[in-house]
């Protein structure tokens, strides 16, 4: 049977009988379709997260024997620089003696090194301000007023424990997860 032509376009509510049922059905269908679109979107988004081969390369071992006291090296871990510094007795004492109230982000030195290995400070070498790499690992670099690291971008300064002492950086240098495999070897990650 041919019927009325909805020339007045669709908004028409013909015959009212099953309106409620139709609307509920439409709601369910619309919701299911939205779930479907989300299910399509997620694999696309997740494909941009680190892939299995990137995640698998998450640990690196560092031999500490060649690093003389007072100097440090930079190693790459997950594409980021990690500073490994061999601190002198004087530097350790300075770091331990600081009053916590004088710090921008108060943290004891003992919480930033591994017990029994206070001569080794291991930090992620990325300024917590805007991501530049601070200077100070090489003996010829400026190390700032607190003898640690100095960020050339905006002048942030860190002490020998990697704690921020002068802004604009808001936080101490991050500590990577690491463990001593032996007295002369650490595994980062």
């Amino acid at each position: 049977m041919s019927a009325t032509a909805p020339a007045d376009h669709g908004s028409g509510h013909p015959h009212g009988v099953d309106e409620g049922k139709r609307d509920f059905l439409k709601l369910v269908t619309g919701a299911a379709a939205a779930i479907g679109v989300g299910a399509i979107a997620w694999p696309l988004i997740d494909s941009m997260n680190p892939s299995a081969d990137v995640l698998a390369l998450s640990s690196v071992e560092v031999d500490l024997t060649p690093i003389p006291a007072g100097q440090g090296i930079t190693v790459a871990w997950r594409g980021k620089p990690v500073f490994v510094r061999h601190r002198t007795e004087k530097e350790i004492k300075e770091a331990e003696d600081v009053k916590l109230s004088a710090l921008i982000e108060p943290q004891a030195d003992a919480d930033r090194v591994k017990p029994g290995h206070a001569q080794w400070i291991v930090v992620i070498g990325i300024c917590t301000h805007l991501g530049c790499i601070p200077l100070g690992n090489k003996p010829t670099d400026p190390r700032g007023d607190w003898g640690g690291w100095f960020c050339p971008c905006h002048g942030s300064q860190y002490d020998t424990s990697g704690r921020v002492r002068h802004g604009p950086a808001p936080l101490n240098l991050y500590l990577p997860p690491y463990a001593f495999e032996s007295d002369t070897k650490i595994k980062i990650g």
């Binding site: 694999p43 696309l44 997740d46 494909s47 997260n49 892939s51 990137v54």
Partner: peptide
């Protein structure tokens, strides 16, 4: 995730299939 280089193209497709999250699905 694809590399258009004769020495890497095949391997990069296999990397998509194996390592990239949902790469096999894409």
């Amino acid at each position: 995730n694809y590399t258009p280089d004769g020495s890497m193209a095949f391997d990069s497709v296999e990397r998509i299939m194996r390592d990239v999250n949902y790469g096999w699905l894409l």
